[in-house]
Computed example of a mutant assay.
Amino acid sequence: MTITAPDPRPQRLTALFFAVLLDLIGFGIILPLLPFFASDMGASGFEVGLLVMVYSAIQLVMAPTWGRLSDRLGRRPILIIGLVGSAASYALFATADSLLVLFVSRIVGGFGGSTIPVAQAYIADVTPPSKRAGSMGLIGAAFGLGFVIGPALGGILSTISYTTAGYAAAGICLLNAGLALAVLPESRRSEAPPTTPRFDLPEALRQAADSKQVRRILVVYLFLTMAFSALQPTLSLLADARFAMDARQAGYLFALLGLVSVVMQGMLVRRLVPRVGERALLRASAFPFAAGLLLVGLSASTAGLLAGLVLLGLGYGGAIPSVLGLLSRSADPDRQGAALGLGQSVGSSARVLGPLMAGGLFDLRVSLPYVVAAGLVALGLTATTHLSQPGDRPPAD
Results as ranks from 00 to 15, higher is better:
Phe111Val: 10
Phe111Asp: 07
Gly112Phe: 01
Gly113Glu: 10
Gly113Lys: 11
Ser114Ile: 08
Thr115Phe: 04
Thr115Leu: 03
Ile116Asp: 09
Pro117Lys: 02
Val118Gly: 06
Val118Tyr: 04
Ala121Gly: 07
Ala121Ser: 10
Ala121Asp: 05
Tyr122Ser: 04
Tyr122Met: 13
Tyr122Asn: 08
Ala124Phe: 07
Ala124Asp: 07
Ala124Glu: 01
Ala124Ile: 12
Asp125Thr: 13
Val126Trp: 00
Val126Phe: 00
Val126His: 07
Val126Cys: 07
Thr127Leu: 01
Thr127Cys: 02
Thr127Gly: 03
Thr127Val: 11
Pro128Val: 15
Pro128Asn: 11
Pro129Glu: 12
Pro129Ser: 08
Pro129Trp: 06
Ser130Cys: 02
Ser130Leu: 12
Gly134Glu: 11
Gly134Arg: 07
Met136Asn: 01
Met136Ser: 06
Gly137Trp: 11
Gly137Asn: 12
Leu138Gln: 03
Ile139Tyr: 00
Gly140Trp: 03
Ala142His: 11
Phe143Pro: 12
Phe143Arg: 02
Gly144Met: 06
Gly144Ala: 03
Gly146Ile: 01
Phe147Tyr: 15
Val148Gln: 01
Ile149Gln: 04
Pro151Lys: 00
Pro151Phe: 01
Pro151Thr: 05
Ala152Cys: 05
Leu153Thr: 11
Leu153Ala: 14
Leu153Val: 11
Gly155Thr: 10
Leu157Gly: 03
Leu157Trp: 09
Ser158Asp: 03
Thr159Phe: 10
Ile160Trp: 15
Ile160Met: 13
Tyr162Ile: 09
Tyr162Phe: 15
Thr163His: 09
Thr163Asn: 13
Thr164Ile: 10
Thr164Asn: 01
Ala165Gln: 04
Ala165Glu: 05
Gly166Ile: 00
Gly166Asp: 09
Tyr167Val: 00
Ala168Thr: 13
Ala169Asp: 13
Ala170His: 03
Ala170Cys: 05
Gly171Trp: 01
Gly171Tyr: 04
Ile172Ala: 00
Ile172Pro: 07
Ile172Arg: 04
Cys173Asp: 02
Cys173Val: 01
Cys173Met: 09
Cys173Thr: 00
Leu174Pro: 03
Leu174Glu: 05
Leu174Asn: 05
Leu175Trp: 04
Leu175Cys: 06
Ala177Phe: 01
Ala177Arg: 00
Ala177Gly: 02
Gly178Val: 02
Ala180Ser: 12
Leu181Gly: 02
Leu181Asn: 02
Ala182Asn: 04
Val183Asn: 02
Val183Trp: 02
Leu184Ile: 08
Leu184Gly: 05
Pro185His: 03
Pro185Met: 02
Arg189Trp: 02
Ser190Trp: 12
Glu191Gly: 12
Glu191Ser: 15
Ala192Leu: 08
Ala192Arg: 15
Pro193Gly: 13
Pro193Ile: 12
Pro193Ala: 15
Pro194Tyr: 03
Pro194Ala: 10
Thr195Glu: 13
Phe199Ile: 14
Asp200Ile: 04
Asp200Met: 08
Pro202Asp: 05
Pro202Gln: 10
Pro202Ile: 13
Pro202Leu: 15
Glu203Gln: 07
Ala204Leu: 02
Ala204Gln: 11
Leu205Val: 08
Leu205Ile: 07
Arg206Gln: 14
Arg206Leu: 04
Gln207Tyr: 12
Gln207Phe: 09
Ala208Ile: 12
Ala208Phe: 00
Ala209Ser: 14
Ala209Trp: 13
Ala209Phe: 06
Ala209Tyr: 08
Asp210Gly: 15
Asp210Trp: 10
Ser211Tyr: 06
Ser211Cys: 06
Gln213His: 06
Gln213Arg: 14
Gln213Met: 05
Gln213Cys: 10
Val214Ile: 14
Arg215Thr: 01
